[in-house]
Nucleic acid binder design. Structure first.
Length: 786
DNA sequence: TTTTGAGTCCTTTTT
DNA sequence: GGACTCAAAA
């Protein structure tokens, strides 16, 4: 037997060795998804069914792509570096660099990250004198990206009123600005690449012939445009029914002079395109489409948690239908979690309608019960977790194997506070990332100006940083001049006169001097830029500049290791003429891969992160915090179509992160937006069968809190208010307190969220959930403790 | 040009 | 409550 196939279970084996047909693999959490994907590639290659250049494998994150490459390298005696395995954006970047002329892009086009994009939109609104209250940049970016992710250019966007028409107009103006500056945002990377293939038949044919197998990871997270892009590469030509709305064929503006080369030109000239002879190995036909690839899509509709950013689970059904998928394979055996955890996850997700359907099981035993803990407030919740973690630590559990998951980032504060006070090392994921730091972005802006001085985003960022006396007025003059002659800011510098003009000219001179150093090896070039621009100097003089200075040093290191690692890739693409490919590649790398969140990876630290960022990870012990209505499920989600379903999938993802032990925590009160909120326990708690659960605090009543006095709470609850003085017989008597569950004959079950007055005047505010929030006089309303 | 105070917002996030 | 933005004051 092929050693690659050892230790695969039956469905895994079936998936890996599937004959060349389109296939959809429903891979449950912890079912060995990545293993199947990589083994499939290795198997296809090692059995001679396809040569490495015939493979296209797509992921969403750089991490996943890297992981795939690493695993593949361990399985195959080939150099996997040059293979087409990467993120959607990374691969599109590669294609666009190779065929930039055909795509209507300058050779050295720069990539805007979301921050750059927002800055560009802001700048646009300013030059057009558009009220940014009416068209907030954030929202406008979102709109533009959403359109692009649907595959819609401005001409194809429908608008019904003036406001909407203006938005589309701004979208158009934004496109023009990007084109003028030679920059491309994330969504544009995909859309431009899609259009390139759609309109350029020879090029499309070339890649359709080349790629025999297209493999997609996390398929449930693809958006419409990504799906279209995949379809195109897999050999489904654009005009066919079922393909998306087509844009009116607007000719792409060309930035360069001279005759546009044909597609054939760039295919033949370009080293990216493998010789056609390599394409199929001794691939022996079979039922696959005559042209184009076999699609092998791996995903889990139950783990689709990115609808809010355009992901469309519907792609799974569409794919199944449009590609006539007969091979639907379910990977349901879970190798991660104990039985109770899986049972809970299955029970929760069962409440979602319209699933493709799947039930995880394990050969591992039931394991420990799921622990549920109620506390009074978020501080108490955090203290409980701290004590529990300390105990687990004493028992020999590694802290790095314990994760604290929460729905929203704001929740980390209380946890961090308690952890800090307890001296427990922890690491929070999801902060500012390396290439997003201000000082790094400044340095990169200078580097970008070396590559392309017309990059107005980069120009505006550093024209007066460090300050060189170029104030708002000079910039305004410059902007006017640029607008007047329809040029970039840089090109307009000679048109500005006066003192401002002199200073601007000095800046232009700086750019020239930076460009003169463009022959230096990349790390030295970076260093040179830091020096000459005055960035290093600036941070040396700043009180709090030490860390930033260290980061800038780190940038030099990053450049060095980039050259060392990607050195071979530097040869990819065309000769860039006077400017170097490695600089452009490094800048693309900085935009496409923002870098790891922060240092301190080696330490044995608790892992704190949102549920979203925990996707794909696993831990021995998991605490899910803040399991309260309004928080998780988040209140905003209830207003959205299918919002609750997505929250439930999120809960499913959270639960399935745990291998051995799972804690579910909730609190009666929580500080939110500066106000104390009283929430009911999350409905997801109730969806877990009772026999899987062990309550660490007295069990809460259905839909409400346990009526218990504070002593019942392990870590000292401190009720802030009592409508009537609390009495020891409050259970029996009429004493109510904030946070307590009550029933009302008409409104049903609720929780007291506020109170005022006392004695006969006492009134309480009760949240009855669906029945609303009411103020009730205790002397009148027939309230009872639930 | 930098500092400071008021005002605003507030799920989730990768590329 | 707090982080971030933006406009006025030093």
């Amino acid at each position: 037997m092929n050693p690659l196939l050892e230790h695969l279970n039956a469905p895994q084996l079936a998936a890996v060795t599937l004959p060349p047909q389109h296939a959809l693999i429903l891979a449950g959490a912890g079912s060995g998804k990545t293993r199947v994907l990589t083994t499939r590639i290795a198997w296809l290659i090692s059995t001679g069914q396809v040569a490495p250049p015939g493979i296209l494998a797509v992921t969403f994150t750089n991490k996943a792509a890297k992981e795939m490459l690493t695993r593949l390298a361990a399985m195959l005696p080939i150099n996997v570096k040059g293979m087409w395995i990467g993120t959607f954006h990374g691969l599109c970047n590669r294609l666009l660099r190779a065929h930039h002329r055909d795509a209507g892009l300058p050779q050295l086009f720069q990539i805007l990250d979301s921050g750059d994009q927002q800055a560009a939109v802001k700048r646009l609104l300013k030059t057009l004198n558009v009220d940014d209250e009416k068209y907030p940049p954030r929202e406008l970016c979102h709109f533009i990206n959403a359109q692009k992710e649907q595959g819609l250019r401005p001409a194809a966007v429908e608008a019904w009123d003036d406001w909407a028409r203006k938005r589309v107009e701004l979208y158009e103006a934004y496109e023009a600005q990007c084109q003028r500056e030679g920059v491309v945002d994330f969504a544009e990377l995909l859309l431009r690449c899609y259009e390139l293939l759609e309109r350029n038949e020879p090029l499309r044919r070339h890649y359709q012939d080349r790629f025999r197998h297209v493999l997609v990871d996390e398929f449930q997270d693809t958006n419409k445009l990504q799906y279209k892009w995949l379809c195109l590469l897999a050999g489904r030509d654009p005009a066919k029914p079922g393909s998306m709305v087509s844009n009116p064929p607007v000719p792409l503006p060309a930035l360069h002079s001279g005759p546009a080369p044909t597609a054939q030109d760039s295919v033949l000239r370009n080293p990216v395109s493998a010789p056609l002879s390599e394409k199929g190995g001794d691939y022996s036909g079979a039922p696959a489409a005559p042209r184009g690839a076999c699609m092998f899509c791996v995903g889990d509709d139950d783990q689709s948690i990115y609808a809010f950013r355009g992901a469309d689970v519907g792609n799974m059904r569409d794919f199944e239908r449009e590609f006539h998928v007969t091979n639907l394979i379910r990977l349901e055996q879970n190798y991660r979690s104990h039985g109770n955890i899986l049972d809970a996850a299955n029970a929760i997700i069962k409440n979602n309608p319209q699933r493709l359907g799947k039930n995880l099981w394990t050969e591992a035993g039931a394991g420990e019960p799921i622990r549920v803990h109620e506390s009074y407030g978020e501080g108490d919740e955090a203290r409980f977790i701290v004590e529990e973690v300390k105990a687990l630590s004493r028992d020999g559990h590694a802290r790095a194997e314990i994760a604290l998951l929460y729905r929203s980032n704001a929740q980390s504060r209380a946890l961090e506070h308690a952890l800090f006070n307890a001296g427990l090392p922890y690491r929070v994921y999801g902060g500012l990332r390396f290439f997003e730091r201000a000082e790094i972005k400044h340095a990169l802006a200078y580097l970008r100006l070396i590559a392309n001085a017309d990059d107005d985003t980069a120009f505006s960022r550093v024209v007066n940083f460090p300050t060189r006396g170029i104030g708002a007025r000079s910039l305004e003059n410059l902007q006017d001049a640029a607008k007047a002659q329809g040029s970039s800011l840089h090109a307009a510098i000679p048109r500005v006169s006066g003192a401002g003009g002199v200073k601007l000219a000095a800046f232009a001179d700086l750019i020239i001097r930076l460009r003169e150093a463009a022959h230096l090896p990349l790390p030295e070039l970076v260093e040179h830029v830091l020096d000459l621009s005055g960035l290093s100097e600036h941070y040396r003089n700043e009180k709090e500049g030490q860390e930033r200075l260290a980061n800038l040093d780190e940038l030099v290191n990053a450049a060095a290791s980039f050259v060392a690692e990607e050195g071979t890739v530097g040869a990819e693409g065309e000769e860039t003429g006077e400017l170097r490919a490695d600089l452009v590649a490094f800048l693309a790398h900085a935009s496409l891969e923002a870098g790891e969140h922060q240092a301190g990876e080696g330490d044995d630290a608790l892992q704190l992160m949102t549920v979203h960022s925990a996707k794909g990870l696993e831990f021995n012990i998991v605490f899910i915090c803040g399991l309260e209505e309004g928080l998780f499920p988040h209140e905003n989600s209830l207003l959205e179509d299918k919002g609750l379903e997505e929250e439930r999938r999120l809960m499913y993802v959270a639960v399935t992160r745990a291998r051995q032990r799972l804690y579910l925590c909730f609190a009666q009160t929580r500080m939110l937006h500066g106000q104390t909120r009283y929430n009911l326990p999350s409905r997801f708690l109730e969806e877990i069968p009772e026999d899987l659960v062990k309550w660490l605090t007295p069990r809460a009543g259905k839909n409400g809190y346990q009526v218990a006095d504070s002593a019942a709470f392990a870590y000292g609850a401190t009720p802030a208010f009592a409508a009537t003085p609390r009495r020891s017989d409050s259970q029996r008597g009429g004493g109510f307190r904030v946070g307590q569950s009550v029933t009302h004959p008409k409104f049903g079950l609720g929780v007291i969220i506020n109170a005022e007055g006392g004695g006969n005047d006492a009134r309480v505010q009760v949240n009855f959930g669906a029945a609303g929030i009411k103020w009730l006089a205790l002397s009148v309303a027939k309230l009872e403790a639930a």
